[in-house]
Amino acid sequence: MDDRTPQLPFEAEFSPDKLRLARCAAGFTLADLGNLLGVSRQYAHKLEVNAVPSPAQIELLTEALGVTEEFLSSPRRGSVELEQCHFRSLRASTQTIKKSIASQVELFELLVNELEQEVDFPPVGFNPFETPLTGDDVIEKAAEGFRRDLSIGIGPIANITRLAESAGVLVVNLADADDRIDAFSLFNKRPLIVRNTAKDNPCRHRFDIAHELGHLVMHQGIETGCRATEAQANQFASALLMPRASFGGEFPSMRGQYLNWAALGELKLRWKVSFKAIIYRAQTLNLITQDQARSGFTYLSRNGFTKREELDEHIEKEAPSLVQRAVDLLDHATWRRILKSAGLTDALVKERFMLKVPVSPLALVT
């Protein structure tokens, strides 16, 4: 293969930036792109700088990346930058993984922008908390203020995902996201939370959503990812899911120096949080001592309850529904128009964002 490439004319209808976006969203490296096209990595790099792919290469790119020719021929009008994003991730996660997730979210926002031309999503129902985060009590008040904004009282939250969506937050699944990323949030035109479906733990998912709500409420305009901001979001999640005004009164008395695990099980099922989260919260509220909390964590570890816990199977696995409901309102012709404008394909929307898409009447007959 001759790696010499034509230089990109000023008028050419090809966007190297959009190719880079689609490649990152698909998790492809430049070497992967070269292998796809049967060219060198250097040639692939030129395509993202100042070269124009051939029609045959365009066909290969659209099929592999899940985008259309229109997508690759339209300018990139905005980008999701990492400093805008709140990642709930393990330390092992890399910038490459985060860029891939951010690129997938940028594609999702293209779809949402088009959906909003047809469907009215709920307005954002909470206010940013702008008081300096100087201590735990301030964060408690931020969580209590969020509950007041949404008029949900001080009892258990039956479905935190549905609550977030009712507050105008779009929650989206990303299929097969790297398991080193737990969750992700962003507030551009509207707040958005990404869930990683690779981890199958209902209590962990609920806490992740509450954690990301903490970022959206407390950290607008603040770069997160450090220990301090992560601890603040964790504290917000605990306070949101287990309000001090009510949770403390339900926490069971100790059996001497030992936790009452049977009663804690009932508490877990009522509040839909993990044993680990219950123990942390009890220690934060001074309901148990540090030594008693340490003993509880040791018990959980000794019994293999680090990733999955007893009674998890009795807690509902939450799933987002707001965007799917918006898609379900559309007829096939409108859906085709939205896809065309976004430059995405049915396959990408179904496989990446785990959404069911409208089918044509002819397909139903067939």
Rank of each mutant, 00 (worst) to 15 (best):
L163E: 10
L163W: 06
L163D: 05
A164P: 15
E165R: 11
E165P: 00
E165N: 12
E165Y: 06
G168Q: 13
V169Q: 15
V169M: 12
V169W: 14
L170P: 00
L170G: 00
L170E: 14
V171E: 07
V171D: 06
V172A: 08
V172C: 00
N173G: 09
L174I: 12
A175Q: 15
A175H: 14
A175S: 14
A175M: 13
D178K: 00
D178E: 12
D178L: 00
D179N: 06
D179H: 05
D179W: 03
R180A: 13
I181C: 12
I181W: 11
D182L: 02
D182N: 10
A183Q: 10
A183G: 14
F184D: 06
L186C: 07
L186T: 07
N188L: 09
K189H: 14
R190T: 12
I193T: 01
N196L: 02
A198P: 01
D200G: 00
N201I: 08
C203K: 09
C203W: 02
C203R: 10
R204D: 15
H205C: 07
H205D: 13
R206F: 09
I209L: 10
I209C: 09
I209N: 03
I209E: 05
A210E: 11
H211S: 07
H211C: 02
E212Q: 06
E212M: 03
L213R: 03
H215T: 08
L216R: 01
L216S: 02
L216M: 01
V217Q: 11
H219W: 08
Q220K: 15
I222M: 13
E223W: 05
E223H: 11
R227G: 04
R227Y: 08
R227W: 01
A228V: 15
E230Q: 09
E230D: 11
E230T: 07
E230C: 02
A231P: 01
Q232G: 06
Q232M: 03
Q232D: 14
Q232T: 15
A233V: 04
N234I: 05
N234K: 01
N234Q: 09
F236M: 03
F236Q: 02
A237M: 06
A237R: 09
A237Y: 06
S238H: 14
A239F: 14
L240D: 09
L240V: 11
L240G: 10
L240E: 07
L241H: 05
L241P: 06
L241G: 06
S246M: 10
G248N: 13
G248E: 12
G248A: 15
G249F: 10
F251Y: 15
F251Q: 11
P252T: 03
P252K: 05
S253Q: 14
S253T: 12
S253I: 07
M254N: 02
M254F: 02
R255G: 04
R255L: 12
Q257M: 11
Q257W: 04
Y258T: 04
L259V: 02
N260W: 12
A262D: 15
A262N: 15
A263D: 12
L264T: 08
L264D: 14
E266W: 01
E266S: 06
E266T: 04
E266M: 08
L267Q: 02
K268Y: 05
K268I: 09
W271T: 03
W271E: 09
K272T: 05
K272A: 13
V273W: 07
V273L: 08
S274P: 05
F275Q: 11
F275K: 04
F275N: 06
F275R: 05
K276C: 04
